[in-house]
Amino acid sequence: MEDDFLKLSSILTGFEPLDAKLGRLYYLEVKKAAGAQLTLLLETYKTHVIGQPGNPEDLIRACIWNVQDLRTLSQAIINLWYTAILNFGAVSWIAPPEAYFDSLLWKAIEAHPPAISGGYFGYWRYPPEN
């Protein structure tokens, strides 16, 4: 299950590979918050996406993204990886600072999380390296 969570997270976030340690932490937190919903999400992923012909993003759109409940949970999972904050149902959980350092939002925009050094004095004068 945990492995599937990481693989699905990867497709949902558009980042490959994701940090496995963080994946474990997030898996446990999402399980606490979503319980059976998460099981259903991962089962759906296993049955309809893994090993199926076609582009995984298209398959996920069809069997997960287009199903309201699964989509809500998927959105919460993406948000968690991107911001280190889980908001699902009544649950609002903030990951420890290490997770914030790795949050994907900042990677996606080629910046760094505020409060962490982006490098040497003056690096901001140049565009990011990659």
Partner: peptide, 13 residues
């Protein structure tokens, strides 16, 4: 979601 969302996010921000 996925790569599309990631690249739109990058584009805009």
């Amino acid at each position: 979601f996925g790569t599309q969302m990631r690249s739109k996010l990058r584009f805009k921000v």
